[in-house]
Design a binder for these strands. Structure first.
Length: 289
DNA sequence: ACACTATCCTGCAGGC
DNA sequence: TGCCTGCAGGATAGTG
C-alpha cells in the first residue's frame, strides 16, 4: 500500500509519540513478517531511547541511542496506530488487539505504537546507524523524488537508451525511490505522457529531455506533495497513526477510474486500465500522448 | 545490463 | 449462501 506519501504521513504521525521516548517494552506476536525477527530483536530495543525518526524512500528509520537504527518497511498492507495506555487519570484502556497486530512498542510516555500488517510483506531489522547508507537495501536506492536531485536532466540520463516504458521506469526504485503504482499513474497523467512511451522516446538524440519529459519532475513533486498534505491515500489498509483515513484517493484523476470520464480532457468513459509488468496502469489515451 | 516473470500473504469483490 | 478467480499500495530472486 504505502508509497512515499503514506510512509511520510506515518512518519509525521509517529514522530511526536516516539522521539525522545524510551522503549519500555516490545511485544512480538509471531516469529516473522516477511523475514524472521532476529532472536535478539526485543532485547535490543528495550531500554533504548529514540533519537530521531527518518524516512528514506518507503523505509522508516528509527535512530536509537546506542548507534543502532530500527529499519521498518510497510510492504503492501502495513500500518501503525498509536494508542494511549491511560485516558485522563483513571481509566485504563485494555490492550485491544486486532487481527494482524504483530508488534507493539510500549513507550515511556504511556503510549503504545502497534504495527498491523495483514499480508506481512513488511519487515523490521536492526542495523548500525552508520551502516544504513551502505546497507544493501539503501546503497542502490535512487534519488528522493521531492529533492532537487530529481529534475529533467536527471531523468534524461536515466531514461536514455531505455526501452522500458516510462511507467515501469518510474516504479524502478534504483532510479527514483519512493514512487509506487498510484503516484506513477497520477504523475504521468498530469504530465500528459502516455505510460506506454519508452524511456528513450522522451530523450532527444543529444541526450536532452524532451518537452514532455521536462514536465514530469514537476508533476511528480506536485502529486506527492498534495498526497502528503491529504494524509496519503486510503484504499484499504492505509491509516494515519490516529486511525484516520488519508483522503487523497478522492483526488485521483486516473487511478482506479477505469471506464470513467477524463477530468482533464473531458473524454467520456475514456480512462483505460492496462497491464504493465504485472501492475495495473490507469491513464487517459485521449490526453496522454 | 536489461526485460520480464513468479513469488511471498491475506482479504475482498465479482461472477456463477 | 458459497465457491472460485482475480486483483491489491512492494520488492526480490530468478529466467532468458
Amino acid at each position: 500500500m504505502p508509497e512515499l506519501p503514506e510512509v511520510e504521513t506515518v512518519r509525521r504521525g509517529l514522530a511526536p509519540a516516539m522521539i525522545n521516548r524510551q522503549i519500555v517494552q516490545v511485544e512480538v506476536r509471531r516469529k516473522d513478517l516477511r523475514f524472521p525477527f532476529p532472536s535478539n530483536f526485543t532485547h535490543s530495543l528495550i531500554g533504548r531511547e529514540i533519537l530521531a525518526l527518518r524516512r528514506r524512500a518507503k523505509y522508516l528509520l528509527v535512530d536509537l541511542d546506542d548507534q543502532m537504527s530500527l529499519i521498518m518497511h510497510l510492504g503492501m498492507s502495513g500500518s501503525f496506530r498509536i494508542e494511549e495506555e491511560t485516558l485522563g487519570n483513571f481509566i485504563h484502556v485494555r490492550n485491544r488487539l486486532f487481527a494482524h497486530d504483530h508488534v507493539t512498542f510500549h513507550l515511556s510516555n504511556g503510549q503504545r505504537v502497534i504495527y498491523n500488517d495483514p499480508r506481512r510483506f513488511g519487515f523490521m531489522l536492526l542495523i548500525p546507524t552508520v551502516e544504513i547508507m551502505t546497507h544493501g537495501y539503501f546503497s542502490h536506492l535512487g534519488v528522493e523524488p521531492l529533492s532537487n536531485l530529481l529534475n529533467a536532466e536527471f531523468l534524461a540520463r536515466g531514461f536514455h537508451h531505455r526501452k522500458t516504458s516510462v511507467k515501469s521506469l518510474l516504479l524502478d526504485q534504483h532510479l527514483i525511490a519512493g514512487i509506487g503504482n498510484i503516484y506513477a499513474c497520477e504523475a504521468l497523467h498530469e504530465a500528459k505522457i502516455s505510460p506506454l512511451r519508452q524511456g528513450r522516446d522522451l530523450v532527444t538524440q543529444q541526450g536532452r529531455p524532451s518537452a514532455a519529459l521536462k514536465r514530469l519532475p514537476k508533476t511528480i513533486k506536485n502529486v506527492l506533495e498534495k498526497a502528503i498534505s491529504a494524509g496519503g491515500s486510503s484504499l484499504r489498509d492505509h491509516r494515519q497513526t490516529d486511525g484516520a483515513m488519508g483522503y487523497f484517493q478522492h483526488q485521483f484523476k486516473v487511478y482506479g477510474r477505469e471506464n470513467e470520464s477524463c477530468y482533464t480532457c473531458g473524454a467520456k468513459k475514456n480512462i483505460s486500465r492496462i497491464d504493465q509488468s504485472g501492475r495495473s496502469t490507469f491513464y487517459c489515451p485521449g490526453c496522454q500522448k
